[in-house]
Write a protein that binds this DNA or RNA. Sequence first.
DNA 1: CGCTATCTTGACTTTATTCAAGGCTTGTGG
DNA 2: CCACAAGCCTTGAATAAAGTCAAGATAGCG
Lengths: 234, 234
Amino acid sequence: MLTRTCEACGVRERALCGVLDDAALAELAVLGVQRRLGRGETLLHAGDPPLVCANVQSGALKIVSLSSDGDDAIVGLLYPGDFVGSPYADRTTHDVVALSDATLCVFPRSVFERALADHRRMEQLLLQRTLGDLAATRDRLAALARASAGSRVAGFLADAARRLAVAGCQRGLEPETTSFDLPLSRGEIGDLLGLTIETVSRQMTRLRLAGIIDLPGGRGIVVRDAAGLLAAAA
Amino acid sequence: MLTRTCEACGVRERALCGVLDDAALAELAVLGVQRRLGRGETLLHAGDPPLVCANVQSGALKIVSLSSDGDDAIVGLLYPGDFVGSPYADRTTHDVVALSDATLCVFPRSVFERALADHRRMEQLLLQRTLGDLAATRDRLAALARASAGSRVAGFLADAARRLAVAGCQRGLEPETTSFDLPLSRGEIGDLLGLTIETVSRQMTRLRLAGIIDLPGGRGIVVRDAAGLLAAAA
DNA sequence: CGCTATCTTGACTTTATTCAAGGCTTGTGG
DNA sequence: CCACAAGCCTTGAATAAAGTCAAGATAGCG
């Protein structure tokens, strides 16, 4: 995937989706404020008025749907280049929490809405991206509905490898990064996939014993057999 | 929920989300063509260029994510007042198929995009609605990840009752309709909830034996105890 | 070096699926 | 109008999958 990310505002440009012109990007970067979040810090809180929109520059965040009984489900992840926020909405629908230390380019919502009004292309792009996110979430829904625990874990690892490899690509590394650190704990992976910690761990071990991955240290992942991983995800 | 639906173009206006003015609605209605679909007919095919956008006027449709092995998952439902289509996109991401006989107000995509360009308010409204759909899909994801078979079935019935009651409200019926016909077969409910036909049937029977619902005929549902149904869904 | 949190592994239980049979509805043709 | 056939729904018994409970291992940190 051909992508290039604006260092200043974190906007990821996808070749296939069309791009903002440089002037608009520069303007956006000026409007935003860089902000650092530590692991566990909350950017947006469900139910609050959505004060800010933001682009992720580095790190990872989780979108959390918290139920009353504390059994929280992770309904989405945000990696560098991703946008988060609900322009024109009066309520934030989900919590957004940093999984690791992260940097974002944050815009006050009113400022961002103003920018959307001034740049039609940007509003179209945001609609496109939101429709894309919707399609991706539906695909995840389909996967979660039918897939076995093994498929879910393998699919998650394949997806993480792909997305973190893209992030590495920005930093000039090999596009096919086969080694990375997970930004999530086993428990968080369980929340994401609708599985228990134990089941996630067992499936990870299965993949390791099958020679498909290695598990160095606590969070480390080495993909030994990318094709095998994709096959296990199917 | 306060809603009112434009008969001509199928746009559902939500009081909380702001409304289009009547002139814009009238203009939209002129641009659209009414189309009837029989049960099983396909409106949009995944992978094709998205030729049309549409508002649902009556009936119900399913958004289907088809896997290679024919094990298709239903990732969303469309009821009267819902919008379907991907303006500015170059590919349709999922199949959209009529569950029952349905009528829609169909717009050629280019015409719809033109209308969006002419009416900023409409584009904002579409973005709002898409963000709302995204939030709803994420909630469904959270539910599907953790909930038991019983909760899923009860939740589906509660949701169907609510949405079909809204549709009935348009026709001047009681807002609290407690009796309706499901637009889906047991198999389709299974596809939607990630369960087998047998499990769906068993859970329906459980709800019937608990006195929460009645099951007259093949597709009929009578909600005897709405509170109990919501409790079972939790 | 020991402490704590996280991860792994094992034994058992619960839950949903699979396989199989039978019943209800609906539509069609005699 | 009734009989029959086809599809859909329900129910039961056996199997497989993931969850729960419990104990031990590993890693990271003061």
